[in-house]
């Protein structure tokens, strides 16, 4: 088996490869282009945020009821907060990736682990609960406000928004926490690999 595997290693190392060449000039250009792409990606979050705020600001101006106005304001703050959090997460990820990707002092296990930790934290703890706290009260107040002001059974919008808020809230908690548990299991597996086998 050992000689078979040596033959396999030899086959692996001598396999024909597609030609690939990248000049230093091309590398520099790609580096600059990548920075531009990241800048555009960051800006997209804010464009989406402005659109959302604009939409609810418009609702704020046309809604005659106080409760709908309060709901709109809460949603605007919630969405701005969530977009800010997404932007911060992207920025932190980019910085840590740039640091780690370009540092041979970070071993593969630690790099993979730090990525999993970052993803786990996005789905639980302060980040997650503050996102929920910022977004859902507005949605709920807005939906309930619509129902209170127009109690007709035909008021589908009000019922739909309230139902979405009521269903999404526990569903989001369940989905995010189960995702964070999945990441934690992967992290635990990696941590075990740092120690000698039992």
């Amino acid at each position: 088996m050992t000689s078979d595997n040596s033959t396999l290693c030899n086959l692996w190392q001598t396999q024909p490869l597609e030609s690939f060449q990248m000049s230093l000039e091309q590398l520099r250009k790609k580096g600059k282009r990548l920075n531009r792409v990241l800048l555009i990606r960051d800006s997209t979050v804010w464009v989406v945020c402005l659109f959302e705020i604009g939409w609810f600001a418009w609702i704020l101006t046309i809604a005659p009821q106080l409760v709908a106005k309060i709901g709109s304001i809460l949603i605007m703050f919630g969405m701005a907060f969530m977009n800010g959090q997404v932007w911060l997460d992207q920025r932190n990820r980019r910085r840590s990736l740039q640091r780690a990707e370009t540092s041979g002092n970070v071993n593969s296990l630690d790099f993979f682990r730090s990525e999993l930790v970052r993803q786990r934290e996005f789905h639980r703890g302060l980040w997650f609960w503050s996102r929920m706290a910022a977004l859902y009260p507005g949605l709920l107040v807005f939906g309930i406000g619509c129902i209170v002001v127009f109690p007709s059974p035909d008021n589908l919008v009000g019922y739909a928004i309230t139902a979405v808020a009521l269903i999404l809230f526990p569903l989001s908690i369940w989905l995010n926490l189960s995702k964070s548990r999945k990441y934690q299991r992967e992290i635990d597996t990696l941590d075990a690999l740092k120690l000698p086998p039992a």
Partner: peptide, 26 residues
């Protein structure tokens, strides 16, 4: 690109081979 960027901080704390494989893998 990652490898080229990384070479600005290569400090000989590990071999070039280890460095290259780590950066490429990351």
């Amino acid at each position: 690109l990652a490898l080229w960027r990384s070479m600005a901080t290569f400090d000989n704390r590990c071999s070039l081979r280890t460095w290259v494989y780590r950066v490429a893998h990351n």
